[in-house]
Design a protein around this nucleic acid. Structure first.
Lengths: 207, 207, 207, 207
DNA sequence: CATGAATGAGACTTCATTCAT
DNA sequence: GATGAATGAAGTCTCATTCAT
């Protein structure tokens, strides 16, 4: 039974410690994205942040908890930002644009976390798994709600809302397989392309 | 330097042996999909096909070669089938429908292989990696060619062909994260939804 | 308890089979000399003679027996030849020259066997070990007898016969570490040098 | 590419750790001498020093590095001692006596290391091999230089210096095959016998 | 005589984790 | 807060050997 002891970075007053934790989480995400959870050894994480292996255990109780913190932080932040940005937008078209922008803004800057979350959700067990699953479910439901409204507004009865939302996330999340901040298109262009393809796909029911 | 010795199942005459290899590849794909390459131990593969660990090494020289055979077979079959199906279709709309159907027909029936190929390409090194990479590049170029024609025909100058192709594969490949043969929608329905969303998205340039 | 079933090559009438056995023994000796007994796998021996692994077991019952045959043949031949050559020589000086020549003649042409016999005597267990040990003891006693006579004739009371014999074999057997049939001195020269150094060392007691 | 990280025992200040390393090297040498490198399992070494298998890997990175450390330490010490002892001796006769004494003093007390170095040089690969090879070459050249002078002084033109040096080492190194500290002659006697046999062998050219 | 296929045993090695300091 | 040293568990792979064909 894992003892979840997630440390809320924002609330803590030990800034030095929490900056260090953030550094560790980021380094771990990079290594886990590059090599997968299993191949991402604690040893490599320690080396990449210039610490001893043993000292890392001050910041997390197990390798699984390290993975949990990465995933939890990612979705917590994503969801909090989304809620805030949606507050003043009410039309479905505007809301879906906010969601897409929020998602891509976050993950273009955190491709490693995106990859880790995509690959390693089911690596978590028990309470860790449930905790992250819950956040993701909430996030998906928000998106689904917007898509439902959008299809209604377009009079589109061909597309199934749930499948359409899944396909949207397919395009959004797939970016971790191809986006390269160095050589790729601008984030803005990539973002616009997906928005455009998706909204057109929805708006005009096939005759 | 890995000595790649891919055995072409179709051409071999040692049926008994090759059927056994196919069984092993399938079992391995299932376990690797469920648990990831690293956690998918040879022991588990052996147990799942009712063989001793050592005897598996009669069929592949290393765990990496096992992964390679899974990926190579998958893309070789996919590509061969596609080439055959495209032979008698010349209009871009028909060709993209063939590609989507071919892709989904294959992977709805081989979700494990899809997941393994998606997650573990870069687990392969050296010649193994290059060999699979080459097949995938060929496959992508075929799709890209069709999308280019499609955009031209639609007079759509907004969408970038390469990004559009990547987004298409985002929707197509993402199915491994949500499709459930037991409880999900029919393959036909899921397939139609993606085709519809994509073709509409392309056809009608945003006003 | 190993069942020693040494096949006497000379007496057998299955020439084809025995030629094959000789080929195998020679190939095995080469590989064992190069890599040591443990690293010299049956697989490598099989490959080097172009046979399947299983078929080798027709010629010996175990890897240890293979090693035994190599060692037994080597010392049996060496000893038989020595006895024959010594028959007509009675003075110690002549007899020691015969022994040195016999030893070097044989081993310059069978360096691999010399190395294997030097390194792997104690790899043999039980009856195998005793059998070879017996031959070697007989061989050593013959040499020791000659050295005793030689020291007596020289009036040399400084040197201990047994130690002197051991030192002689040190020089004789050490050749496997440095003699190279391709680039080294002629066998004749190398042989003369040892004979010269040893006989002078014995003949002239230090002041 | 092995990363050779030889720890100089003498210079380190972590006495506890280095004493432990020395203990391990010694135990490993004994087992490798008794059974050969391949049969000398890490398990046996661990058991013989009362440690877990995994903990040994704190002291070396691979079994091959363990073998390397044994060989490197042996020849480094031997060579350093020789250089020191030769410093104040200039006549060839004295110098060869110093060399013989140094060699035998060291190896009578480290017969296991002598056997391991004799049998397993070529078990080392790449940088490990080159490193030890270099030391041995230096050691041999020192001996050869002395023998050259010695032969010159004796007016002996019969003997080839290189072959003579090789034969000397044959007698010196062969001791690992027969010397028994329990039942054998005194080291002093054994040492004198070799010195005597060799110097006489050289001094009096055969008529 | 020959061999394809199989297997139990056991080797080296790595890893997450702990704990005394 | 930090870390050197240690370890049980487990993984991949190789090997000698067997046996039905």
């Amino acid at each position: 039974m894992p003892d979840i002891s997630y440390r809320n970075l924002a609330e803590s007053r030990h800034l030095r410690t929490d900056e260090r934790l953030a550094t560790i989480l980021h380094a771990a995400a990079r290594i886990m994205a590059d090599e997968g959870y299993e191949r991402a050894t604690i040893r490599k994480v320690a080396a990449s942040v210039g610490a001893s292996i043993a000292s890392l255990y001050y910041y997390f109780n197990s390798k699984e908890e390290l993975l949990y913190q990465i995933q939890y932080c990612t979705f917590k932040t994503l969801l909090d930002n989304l809620d805030e940005s949606l507050e003043n937008v009410s039309d479905p078209d505007g809301r879906i644009r906010v969601l897409i922008r929020n998602h891509l803004d976050h993950f273009f800057r955190n491709l490693n976390e995106l990859k880790v979350c995509s690959h390693e959700l089911e690596t978590l067990k028990g309470a860790y798994y449930e905790s992250v699953k819950e956040l993701r479910k909430t996030y998906f439901r928000t998106a689904l709600g917007i898509v439902v409204d959008l299809l209604k507004d377009s009079g589109n009865t061909t597309l199934d809302p749930k499948l359409t939302t899944l396909n949207l996330f397919g395009m959004l999340d797939w970016i971790y397989t191809w986006y390269d901040p160095e050589t790729g298109p601008s984030e803005r262009k990539a973002s616009n392309q997906i928005t455009c393809l998706f909204l057109n796909g929805i708006r005009s029911p096939s005759r």
